[in-house]
Nucleic acid binder design. Structure first.
Length: 531
RNA sequence: GGGCGGGUGGCGAAGAGGCUAACGCUGAGGUCUGCAAAAUCUCCAUUCACCGGUUCGAAUCCGGUCCCGCCCUCCA
């Protein structure tokens, strides 16, 4: 397992502190707004890495913080005339909705700044006691000069930074590069008591404190976006290592940016897309697929067509899942020896599984790994297309293959349960029956009219005469499968009678309402349109 | 100015010394089908920004040139 380490600028073999245990800390969002797509990238990629490590047998202890005390939160709360802590709380809840939608699993701990103030104060006191920090009028600063390794992560030297300093200069600081550990509060601002008066923590100290508190003085992997390398992570290293005298994190991982027209998507440029809005237009699994279809360190340019492409590509993979489900008649696959064609097939699946693992072992190359998943999809489809489903050997072979396929897809987290609004779709479909019925009535085909009436009665739906509208008289919506099956049945009869126009009317109408019909050798299959 | 990363087909994107330069989208054609869809099969980069060099061999290494992005200030 190799990981690209920002600290050394090289890919390195992963050697964990304890065998098969990984301590992982990923910087989480500042909760003053809904997250945008750029925020979603680290979320998704590190979730995928965590899943992969677990798949490889590691026990992963995963911590992701919330920055719920921050100037931006305070300002926004003031603008909206509300309490900063409840504003932060609200956006933490919204964050979880987005994360859940993207199939991002919860961290083992989601610590918040506001819940770790005493520990932060202790840390600042300790830094002062060790000479790494100094107080000026209620503010406490980190004395960068005192930490000789400063700059080792971002590859800069203190000398260069002092020379090229064009940072705002707070005259009270000993050096322009010194940064705040504790900020004094203005009148009426959110604050906590401290030895230096009322105030709140600076931005960087929280991560040092929470990482150490929940994971220990040295952790295996610390992750976050590229822009955090400097100053945030550089400062975290300085603080943590000044406190403990030990290496803070052995591997630093940073994801690349999402760009729009090749420009960084960021809040300050205003070119960001709120994830919530994107999820209105595209299925969440397509968004997740899009985010992992490119290597995590590369920049990723965003526009709608990319999500559309992701949707289609993922649809191909999911279609294989459907084909398998239809092919498989039972789950019995144990104790059957695969021979001949089945054995060759299984071997190629195993080969692709190994290729997948090899790709992921190389710095989590999800893009390459996905390629093998597509090849696996081809293999499975082709095998199914050429095989008799009544054979126990074929059943076993496909069963084993799809299990591997599904497991690997789940490692990437791209196989989510479809969340279709079935009620809405059923509501859209029922009028097709009404329309068919009224057409039949015009033609004097009363047998057919009665057939439909009986069916509707069965599923507790009324047709309002004259208007062709369907009205439910049950509190429960009819099962979508039952309704679609009925339409398929009607269409089959029409096809037998070669009344293709009407048959196509049914297929087209369903299509418009989100249901796709496919005529296969095994009969008609249906699926939801947006997969 | 300093630090970092990148330029691969119509598009997206892997590949980091030697297999036919993965895979996806798009497009073309065949099989299947009443048609469509799905599936399947085949085709679509003599060439990897440019110029030199190292090497038996370079998209991959080295030097130079030209572009592009990011960080150096809150930002994932």
């Amino acid at each position: 397992m190799k990981i690209f380490n920002t600290l050394t600028g090289k890919k390195e073999e992963l050697r964990t502190l304890s065998p098969y245990k990984v301590k992982m800390y990923v910087c989480g969002p500042t909760t003053y707004n809904y997250i945008h797509l750029g925020n979603a990238r680290p979320l998704v990629v590190f979730d995928a890495f965590r899943r992969y490590l677990q798949f490889r047998g590691y026990e992963v202890n995963y911590v992701q913080n919330f920055t719920d005390v921050d100037d931006k939160i305070i300002n926004r709360a003031r603008d909206e005339g509300q309490d900063p802590m409840s504003l932060a709380e609200r956006y933490i809840n919204e964050y979880f909705k987005d994360a859940d939608a993207l199939n991002v699993r919860r961290a083992d701990v989601h610590p918040r700044v506001s819940e770790n103030i005493p520990e932060i104060i202790e840390a600042v006191k300790l830094l002062m006691a060790k000479g790494y920090a100094y107080e000026v009028q209620g503010d406490v600063f980190f004395r960068v000069r005192a930490f000789s390794d400063y700059g080792k992560l971002s590859g800069r030297s203190l000398k260069d930074m002092l020379a090229g300093a064009r940072v705002e200069v707070d005259e009270r600081k000993e050096e322009p590069v010194d940064f705040a550990l504790w900020k004094s509060a203005k009148e009426g601002e959110l604050c906590w008591d401290s030895p230096w008066g009322r105030g709140r923590p600076g931005w960087h100290i929280e991560c040092s404190v929470m990482a150490i508190k929940y994971l220990g003085e040295t952790i295996d992997i610390h992750g976050g976006g590229n822009d955090l390398i400097f100053p945030h992570h550089e400062n975290e290293i300085a603080q943590s290592e000044a406190i403990t005298g030990k290496p803070f994190a052995n591997y630093w991982m940073h994801n690349g940016f999402i760009t729009v027209n090749k420009e960084k998507m960021s809040k300050s440029l205003g070119n960001f897309f709120i994830l919530r809005d994107i999820l209105e237009k595209y299925p969440a699994d397509a968004v997740r697929f899009y985010l992992i279809a490119t290597h995590y360190r590369s920049p990723l340019d965003f526009d709608d067509s990319k999500l559309e492409e992701a949707r289609k590509a993922l649809g191909r993979l999911k279609n294989t899942l459907d084909l398998c489900k239809e092919f498989k008649k039972s789950n019995i696959e144990i104790g059957i020896d695969l021979e001949g064609k089945a054995s060759d097939f299984w071997q190629s699946i195993e080969k692709l599984e190994n290729d997948f693992i090899e790709a992921m072992d190389d710095d989590f190359n999800t893009a390459k790994a996905l390629g093998f998943l597509f090849e696996m999809s081809h293999q499975i489809n082709a095998y199914i297309a050429a095989s008799n489903r009544d054979s126990a050997v074929n059943q076993a072979a496909v069963g084993r293959a799809v299990r591997v396929f599904t497991e690997l897809g789940n490692v990437l987290g791209i196989f989510m349960e479809g969340r279709h609004n079935e009620m809405q779709i059923v509501e859209g479909i029922l009028p097709i029956l009404a329309e068919l019925s009224s057409d039949a009535e015009t033609e004097g085909n009363y047998e057919f009219v009665n057939n439909i009436r009986d069916f509707l009665k069965e599923i507790k739906v009324n047709i309002e005469d004259g208007e062709g509208k369907c009205v439910l008289y049950s509190s429960r919506y009819p099962d979508i499968n039952v309704v679609v099956k009925k339409l398929i049945e009607i269409r089959s009869i029409l096809r037998q009678k070669k009344e293709y126009q009407k048959a196509d009317f049914i297929r087209d109408s369903l299509r418009k309402r989100g249901i796709i019909l496919e005529d296969t050798r095994e009969g008609v299959r249906w699926k939801f349109a947006d997969l």
